[in-house]
Structure formats: C-alpha cells, structure tokens
Design a protein around this nucleic acid. Structure first.
Lengths: 185, 185
DNA sequence: ATTCGACGTATCGATTCGATATATCAACCT
DNA sequence: AGGTTGATATATCGAATCGATACGTCGAAT
C-alpha cells in the first residue's frame, strides 16, 4: 500500500524522501503519516526492484546553493507498470481506511468504470461494518459504561458520515459519465 | 497500546484470546481490529512478564461440554499495576486515533481529574492537526484534483466532528464534577 | 455423508513503527 | 563572534504488528 503512495507521488514529479513524507501527510492527514523507518527502507526496496531510480544526489559543499544532501528519486517504466497494477488490483479487493485514502488520492488515474466500482465497493464495505456494529451495540448497550457507549455511538455516526460522503462521490461520478446534453433535446 | 487493551479487558473478566479479539472489535470498531499474529504473541509476552496467567485450558474430548481447546487468561496483581501505569502514562502523552480509542474504552478507571486532562489534551491535539491541515489545504487548493480536494475536505470535516464530540464529552465531565444543586439557590 | 463456516490457537516472513544517530543550515539570542 | 535551537535530510536497529497460512474441533445446512 505504501508502495502505491510512493510510486503515485513520483508519477507526478521527482521527489526526495523527506518531501514524499511531507506530501503524503498533506494529502492523507494524520491517518497515514508514515515514519522514516518505513519510508527509507521502502525506497531502497523499490530501487532494488527497479521501480525507482536516483536522479540526483546533492551533497552540500556547493556553497552557492541552498541544496542539502538530498536523494531525488524518479519513476522508471517498470515503476509505472507496478503503479498501474497496484492501483487496479486494489479497487476490487478489501481495503482499510488507510489503503482507501491512498487509492482515493490517485483515483484520477483509474478508468472511469473502475473508479466507480471502487467507490461502490468501499461504500458497501462501510455499510456492512456499520450494520454489524449497530447490531452488536444494540445487544450490549446495557453492559456498557457511558464512555464506551459514547465512543461506539460516535464511531457509528462517523461511519455513517463516511457513507454519506461516498454516496455523494458516487452520484457525482455517475453524472460526469453522461454526455453533457446541456440544453433540452 | 495493545497491552493496555488486553489487560483492561482481563481486568473486567477472565477471557481467552479469541474472545479478547472479538470484544475489542466490538468496542473499537474496525479502527483497532488486531490480528491473531499480534494477539497470541502478545499474550505470551504478557504471560512471561507475569502480567497474566492461564487459568484454564479446556481440551475438547470432554464429551458433555461444548468447550473447545481454550486458554483462559486472568490478570495477576502485577498485571493490574501495569494496567494502571499504562492508563495514566498515556493520558498526558501524544496518542493517535487507535491509542485514544483504547484509552477511552477504559476511561472509567481513571480518576476524574486525569480523565478530564486526557480529554482536553486530545481535543487540543486534534485542533492543532485540523488548523495545520486547513492551512496547508488553503495553500494548495489550486493544485489538487477533485478527488484529493474532496478527500481532504471530508477528512477535515471528520476531524471537526471529532472535536465537537470531545467538547461534549468534556462539558459532560465537568458537569458531573459539580454537586447536583438541583433546585434554584 | 460431507462440505461449509464459525470457533480457536499458533507461527512465519515481511512490513511498519518508534527511537535514535548523524549532519547541514538558517535564525535567533547574547 | 559564538552558541543554541529547530527545520531539513538520510539512515538503521530492535520490537511490534500484519497478513497469510496451518491445523483442528464443532454444529448446521445441503
């Protein structure tokens, strides 16, 4: 999943590790903030696999520039293929919050129909989770203290909001599908 | 963090591994669903540390019962101490979503003032995150495609809801503090 | 009868985390 | 001028965690 995020960002522009982390944090928020202990080994792994390549290492010493010791990575052709595979593969598989957010961030690279399927699938997953949670909640309310009760209720409300949001994304996606047909026939 | 969850559940009743996982899923939802590859090693570790102890292993073979090969764990005195430490320690430290939810599930075991501090601290953290996210969003809107824009906006709305919820929890907590003073002075 | 799914414990390799180390540079303080 | 701090940047290590898989029992449906 992390691979998808890294490759996706590199697809858009060449970046060094620190900047990849920063952008990921910007797009995904605190949900998917990754540590350096994950990022740098991942970059090395991707380099070994031939998915990325180092374009530029600026050691300091060059007095006139502000550049520091950065390793700027670029996406190879192999990397582009892997990105496409990862993106499509996951649009049908089960995905958690984090994986969903990452894929959503690169949804524009999916063909329209795959994107719609991806959204619908996520919507159904969340719905199933919510129903399950509500049932188990109903069976246990009496045994829960106020903190747990409130925590669970809040969680369920949040999940419901997520579903609403997905519904709006889905209907938007469906509208774009139709040819504009601006004025009346 | 996982230790806290396990010890907390065992504080309430003796349980076997599978049931610990089930209850955790019930209370925390899909946020903190832990895998068996985490749970069973963790139980072994806690047993080695002397925090938990196996009370009962029911091998099947006993025809008349429905019991299967369960290992039922109980909390030792050492385990109780560790639980208290973990619970208090984290109420001041930085906590992510998952760690917060776990601690919230056992908030009733905190003294009133620590609980209030815990909630306020979390509130402030979320607020800081939200402000940061909104600023970086404002600086980048133009460069974001509609999917990313919507993803980030939705994330920020959710964070705002979280803050609202925490505010309600905090004010509730403060009300309980005051002696009832039911009728007018 | 037997396949299926839920229950239940366990391990393995790979991934990820959190802490720590190292270093450069800008900015601010005194 | 010298010193501290904080942001930028890469990297590694041990421990925690995940996801897949294995193995087995049991009740229920086909």
């Amino acid at each position: 999943m992390l691979d998808l995020a890294i490759l996706g960002l590199l697809r858009e522009s060449d970046l060094h590790g620190y900047e990849i982390r920063r952008r990921l944090g910007e797009i995904l928020g605190p949900i998917a903030r990754l540590s350096f202990g994950t990022l740098y080994p991942a970059l090395n792994r991707l380099e070994t696999e031939g998915a990325v390549r180092v374009v530029n290492v600026t050691k300091s010493r060059t007095r006139l520039t502000t550049e520091r010791g950065r390793k700027v990575y670029t996406l190879t052709d192999i990397g582009k293929e892997i990105f496409e595979e990862l993106l499509e593969a996951g649009s049908t598989a089960a995905t958690d919050d984090k994986a969903f957010a990452i894929r959503m961030a690169f949804a524009r690279y999916l063909p329209k129909d795959a994107r719609l399927r991806f959204l619908v699938r996520r919507r159904e997953q969340l719905h199933a989770q919510l129903v399950e949670a509500q049932q188990s909640f109903a069976n246990n309310v009496t045994e829960l203290d106020s903190y747990r009760r409130s925590l669970i209720e809040h969680g369920n409300e949040m999940r419901a909001k997520d579903i609403d949001w997905l519904d709006s994304m889905i209907s938007q996606e469906q509208q774009v599908n139709r040819p504009s047909r601006a004025s009346k026939p």
